[in-house]
């Protein structure tokens, strides 16, 4: 199957599946590894992080695309892309935090600590930069961001599940903590290699 030749709903589904399985943001592209290792101790917190990232990624893909096409490109300020995008993301995260605090205190308290951390999640900046450099139009950019975020959620929840089990086992002293998590993630990456070629980008 190839994304290029597909149309309509099929195309949307293929873009999503490509971002989630074939080109997984954590296990293939290595973006967002810090939260991947840092907040994958328990399944619930991992899922919370995943939801927060999905939220922020979709909105920032939308806003950065508009900023690039309507402000930076017409003014010939392309070289300010990195600075502009990181500021947009930082401001958005702050805004989402304030919005959630007012409108949905339960969701806010469950995401609480993870929201500010998302600013330094390189997957968010990464996906917005890739959207522009790949020349996606607005719709595809947002779908791609949602797919990337779902891939992030899938991988981090899977790793958290494995780590919860692993705590019961007797890991060698020097391998404990980050070391065994990385090796586990490596095995997951081997499994995800099975999806290579499923969909052509």
């Amino acid at each position: 199957m190839s994304i290029e030749s597909a149309t309509g709903i099929t195309r949307i589904v293929l873009i999503l599946l490509y971002a989630i399985l074939v080109n997984n943001v954590l296990l293939v592209q290595f973006q967002g590894i810090c939260p991947f290792l840092g907040v994958s101790r328990r399944v619930e917190t991992a899922a919370g992080m995943g939801i927060a990232v999905t939220f922020v990624m979709a909105i920032s893909a939308l806003v950065t695309w508009v900023v690039q096409k309507l402000i930076l490109d017409p003014l010939g300020l392309g070289y300010l892309q990195t600075i502009a995008f990181i500021l947009v993301i930082a401001a958005l995260v702050q805004f989402v935090e304030m919005f959630l605090k007012k409108s949905s205190p339960t969701l806010y308290s469950s995401l609480g600590v993870y929201l500010p951390l998302i600013t330094t999640n390189c997957a968010v900046l990464g996906v917005t930069l890739i959207n522009i450099s790949a020349g996606y139009d607005l719709g595809v950019a947002v779908i791609n961001a949602v797919g990337t975020a779902l891939g992030f959620t899938l991988a981090i929840v899977l790793l958290a599940g494995i780590r919860e089990r692993m705590e019961l086992g007797n890991t060698p002293k020097n391998l404990r903590g980050f070391s065994i998590s990385l090796i586990t993630a490596g095995l997951m990456a081997v499994a995800f290699m099975g999806f290579t070629g499923l969909i052509k980008g």
């Binding site: 296990l27 293939v28 592209q29 290595f30 060698p172 020097n174 391998l175 980050f178 070391s179 065994i180 998590s181 990385l182 090796i183 993630a185 490596g186 095995l187 990456a189 081997v190 290699m193």
Partner: peptide, 15 residues
């Protein structure tokens, strides 16, 4: 490959 990156980093950390 990407998987090897995880293995290498994990093993170096253990070392």
């Amino acid at each position: 490959s990407p998987a090897g990156g995880f293995f290498t980093f994990g093993l170096f950390l253990a070392l």
